[in-house]
């Protein structure tokens, strides 16, 4: 078994795709004609967005992601050499700041924002495992 997808349930899939393109520089790989599902170009493990509506079909239930609510206890982390620039770009695109870029004892520079749906997103430098 391998990790295939990270699927985030959102209120509006096309809006979220456009936001992720503007805020994090991702590109869309696929959008279903119904606009209820889309995939981003993220390599082997796909980041996808699915419309919240579809969950009741399968009897699922969850706390929907919303800016007005406490975010769920997990995050998406984007890795870049220039965290400060990526952080500014994310804010300019409409992300809300949670923690500005700062160094941590193990050597990384990290920062946190919340996306248009209130999901927690980390922007950090790569982890140097050899260090």
């Amino acid at each position: 078994m391998k990790l295939g997808y990270t699927i985030i349930y959102v209120k509006n899939v096309p809006e979220t795709v456009a936001f992720y393109e503007a805020a994090f520089g991702l590109t869309q790989r696929f959008m279903h004609e119904s606009t209820l599902y889309a995939e981003m170009e993220t390599g082997d493990t796909v980041l996808s967005f699915s419309a919240e509506e579809v969950i009741e079909l399968d009897g699922l239930a969850f706390a929907p992601n919303e800016k007005s609510a406490i975010p769920a206890g997990w995050e998406i982390c984007f890795v870049t050499e220039d965290v400060a620039a990526a952080f500014e770009k994310a804010l300019a695109a409409g992300c809300s700041p949670v923690s500005k870029p700062h160094g941590v004892p193990w050597g990384q520079t990290i920062s946190y924002v919340r996306d248009l749906n209130g999901c927690l997103v980390e922007i950090a430098t790569p982890m140097n495992l050899e260090g």
């Binding site: 969950i55 239930a61 969850f62 706390a63 929907p64 007005s68 609510a69």
Partner: peptide
């Protein structure tokens, strides 16, 4: 809509907070 997504599991206080 929130009630349906959460399968009816939200407390009224949480729904009110989300609705502002």
């Amino acid at each position: 809509r929130r009630i349906h997504l959460a399968g009816g599991r939200f407390a009224v206080t949480e729904l009110a907070a989300r609705a502002g």
